[in-house]
């Protein structure tokens, strides 16, 4: 059974079909890549999964429960956590508190229906400590986000997601705006997170990174999923090359 199945998802804005009949499934424990030219519907698909965009048609199912139609906060408590393209940290809270926000409404383990009790204090601390260690943020836990360099701020966001121990983490361009060295470091961290048992869906342009971290790749264009498979075989397909025609790989 797939962790998440999307069947014939459609999202329209006015007359524009931003997502136009996408059917894909995500498997537990995999790192999935989501690539495609700008405006191909990647972010809208992530918004649709996380409840921020309404589906006009089709469905999204997590562990056999239909989550399409739910509010974003309900979907979070079912076990899907996401980050945004732009950095979304609260400047009034420390790094540790920013990560705590991820656990504040998370539900106790073993309950996927969102009805479970909130976590007890020691479980919260364990999760946050674990996430802080996984993302290498031990030294900065007491700092405020504005004191950290951009790359580390990105890590705080991912730590916030990891700390909620979701079934699925959606990362919207986590590598955007990073230097090559930062990218390499972060990709190592994502591999560690996956080894820790998390399932990921990552939007990214840089095919070098995709090849390094992803075991399965979806390619979108014009709101449709035009190809999927292992990164190696997918990238070589003619239809994929065409979609990327005129577009340099690795642009941020």
């Amino acid at each position: 059974m797939s962790l998440l199945s999307i069947v014939d998802a459609q999202v329209r804005f006015g007359g524009v079909r931003a997502v136009d009949g996408v059917t894909i499934s995500l498997e537990r424990g995999n790192v999935h890549g989501l690539v495609g030219p700008n405006g191909s519907g990647k972010t809208t698909l992530v918004n649709a999964i996380s409840g921020f965009a309404r589906l006009h048609d089709g469905s999204v199912t997590l562990n056999d429960e239909q989550i399409s139609g739910m509010r974003p906060d309900q979907i979070f408590t079912r076990g899907i956590s996401r980050t945004f393209q732009s950095i979304r940290l609260l400047s009034t809270l420390t790094v540790r508190e920013n990560i705590l926000i991820g656990t504040d409404r998370a539900r106790a383990e073993g309950d996927g229906r969102g009805a479970g009790k909130l976590l007890p204090r020691d479980a919260v601390n364990d999760r946050v400590d674990h996430a802080v260690a996984l993302l290498g943020l031990e030294k900065f836990a007491g700092d405020f986000p504005s004191q950290l360099p951009y790359g580390l701020q990105r890590r705080v966001e991912i730590a916030r997601s990891v700390a909620s121990r979701p079934e699925l983490i959606l990362l919207d361009e986590p590598f955007a705006g990073m230097s090559r060295a930062e990218r390499d470091e972060l990709s190592d961290v994502l591999i560690e997170i996956a080894d820790d048992g998390f399932t990921l869906l990552v939007i990214e342009h840089d095919m070098r990174i995709i090849h390094k971290i992803c075991s399965h790749l979806f390619v979108m264009n014009f709101g449709r999923c035009i190809a999927e498979g292992s990164p190696r075989e997918t990238a070589e397909l003619e239809i994929v090359q065409e979609a990327y025609l005129g577009k340099q790989h690795g642009t941020a």
Partner: peptide
């Protein structure tokens, strides 16, 4: 917990929703 939820609602509603806060 409540204070952090209020902070997130004050500064960024979407973020608040994305971490499970029922606006």
């Amino acid at each position: 917990r409540t204070g952090r939820a209020q902070d997130s609602l004050l500064h960024d509603e979407q973020l608040a929703q994305s971490v499970g806060i029922d606006i």
